[in-house]
């Protein structure tokens, strides 16, 4: 399928916070309690539309276990967006956010858009991290923030799309040189080049059309 842009996303965060479930909810629109823990990385993809333009999200769902980090770090390279996930019912997953951020800052490109997600908000009765704490952390570190539930699908769609919209805005503002793929953005055929110019888009001059 043709797209105007392709964005590479990574999903990071402690093991068991629900990264794979968020991905499955987003790509397949279902909560899948029967699935395997992630070893290395799994891939997902979905088309979305922003500003009437088709955008393909290529999503890398990484393994959260600490000892896999030396491997999973190598997946950060060239990601345009990251979903940093913690589990609102497990305090330690929130406490580890700083070290995840540090990894991201070190191994991903500086302009990567990061969305902080407090997952499992359906389990409000077991909440161990308040919404305000999440908001506060996001604010301090310049992240977008949402609480979500992979189980009920609450805010899942929004989290992925809001991240894409932010990246898209950065392109419009000329923050990225989209011809440089290390930013995790590819310009597709039939796509619209950003202000800094598209790499390959013969129909670029045709305006907003995305056929």
């Amino acid at each position: 399928m043709s797209y105007a842009y392709l964005f590479k996303y990574i999903i990071i965060g402690d093991t068991g916070v629900g990264k794979s479930c968020l991905l499955l909810q987003f790509t397949d629109k279902r909560f899948q309690p029967v699935h395997d823990l992630t070893i290395g990385v799994e891939f997902g993809a979905r088309m979305i539309t922003i500003d009437n333009k088709p955008i393909k999200l290529q999503i890398w769902d990484t393994a959260g276990q600490e000892s896999f980090r030396s491997i999973t770090r190598s997946y950060y390279r060239g990601a345009a967006g990251a979903l940093l996930v913690y589990d609102i019912t497990r305090r330690e997953t929130f406490n580890h956010l700083a070290s995840w951020l540090e990894d991201a800052r070190q191994h991903a490109n500086a302009n990567m858009t990061i969305m902080l997600i407090g997952n499992k908000c359906d389990l409000a009765h077991r909440r161990a991290v308040s919404t305000e704490e999440g908001e506060q952390f996001a604010k301090e570190h310049g992240l977008i923030f949402m609480e979500a539930s992979a189980k009920t699908a609450q805010n899942v769609e929004e989290a992925f799309i809001k991240t894409a919209a932010t990246i898209y805005k950065k392109i419009q503002d000329g923050v990225f040189d989209v011809s440089n793929e290390s930013y995790g953005i590819k310009v597709g055929y039939g796509g619209i080049p950003g202000p800094s110019g598209g790499r390959d888009g013969p129909s670029a001059a045709a305006g907003g059309c995305c056929s």
């Binding site: 093991t15 068991g16 029967v34 699935h35 395997d36 823990l37």
Partner: peptide, 18 residues
């Protein structure tokens, strides 16, 4: 806790663990 989280995410689609 870790083990308990993981055994429910191991081969659950097989009859033996379903």
């Amino acid at each position: 806790g870790l083990i308990e989280k993981d055994v429910v995410r191991t081969d659950r689609s097989l009859a033996f663990y379903e």
